[in-house]
């Protein structure tokens, strides 16, 4: 590897190569390779059961690969300590149950866990990061509210703010807009786009193709545990792709997607 290439790897985010992930003897993801660089918003698309969540977990090092590797800053994510990993990657899992009716500010402050922040005693950089994240997600008015009293849309913003507060260069989000109304889907995607505009890199699982083509700079298409295509929306979002990946008939017109029904 050249000096140039290794430096690129050091500054350009997440590199996944030949990743195979297994659970209980079943291969869930096979031979997955992709890169996520700073300044990119990548949407991971595919039908239910395609292995998207498994791939994300493997990429962030929460699932140990049977083969291949996922690297950040030249280090295997699966071998990193949780703390080091959290400083590089903010991860929003699909299930985001809150065990206690904690105030919004405390939940956002948990994003600073890897920095050593303790709830109720935020200081210096931790306090600044939490206030910035609250402001970015328009949550200042709700900062003292109990999360038990929030709507689904408000809660989604709280989780985004929690991820942004970490100030990690990369964001990996599993269905961040699931179960949100269209308005809140746009709001959350706007927040992620703003994060990318400030130099972050985001990998986001989406089910809404129109949303993906509107926001993402690249689409990664998955089916049956394998990556089938990886490229900008203009190149990879086609009627044939919809048929191949989802088994649906659709019409594509620029970034407009119309699904007509099953094949």
């Amino acid at each position: 590897m050249t000096v140039e290439a290794s430096r690129n790897q050091g500054t350009s985010g997440l590199t996944v190569s030949g990743l195979r992930l297994m659970a209980g003897g079943t291969t869930l993801v096979e031979g997955a390779s992709f890169r996520l660089r700073a300044g990119e918003l990548v949407a991971l698309l595919g039908p239910n059961g395609a292995g998207k969540t498994t791939l994300l977990r493997g990429a962030v090092g929460l699932a140990h690969p049977a083969a291949g590797q996922a690297q950040v800053e030249g280090e295997d994510t699966a071998a990193m300590t949780p703390r080091r990993r959290a400083l590089q990657l903010a991860y929003l899992p699909q299930n985001r149950p809150l065990a206690w009716p904690s105030p919004v500010r405390d939940v956002v402050a948990l994003g600073r866990f890897a920095h050593g922040a303790a709830l109720g005693r935020l200081r210096g950089a931790d306090r600044t990061a939490v206030e910035r994240a609250l402001a970015a997600c328009d949550l200042q008015q709700l900062a003292g509210r109990s999360t038990a009293t929030l709507s689904g849309g408000e809660l989604a913003r709280v989780h985004c703010a929690r991820a942004f507060a970490a100030e990690a260069p990369l964001l990996i989000a599993d269905e961040p807009v699931a179960e949100l109304d269209p308005y809140h889907q746009f709001r959350v995607m706007d927040l992620i786009r703003a994060f990318v505009a400030e130099g972050g890199g985001a990998l986001v699982v989406l089910h809404d193709l129109a949303l993906a083509s509107r926001y993402a700079s690249r689409l990664i298409w998955m089916k049956a545990g394998r990556i089938r295509a990886d490229g900008p929306p203009a190149a990879t979002l086609t009627a044939e792709r919809l048929a191949d990946i989802y088994g649906v008939r659709g019409r594509i017109d620029g970034t407009r997607v119309e699904i007509e029904g099953p094949l």
């Binding site: 949780p82 703390r83 400083l87 985001r96 809150l98 405390d106 939940v107 866990f113």
Partner: peptide, 21 residues
């Protein structure tokens, strides 16, 4: 104690924010 706070997010997310489960 700090890890107990992190677990408010659930185990998966707590691990994601840097907790050694």
């Amino acid at each position: 104690r700090r890890g107990l706070s992190a677990l408010t997010l659930g185990e998966e997310a707590a691990s994601g924010v840097g907790l050694n489960l």
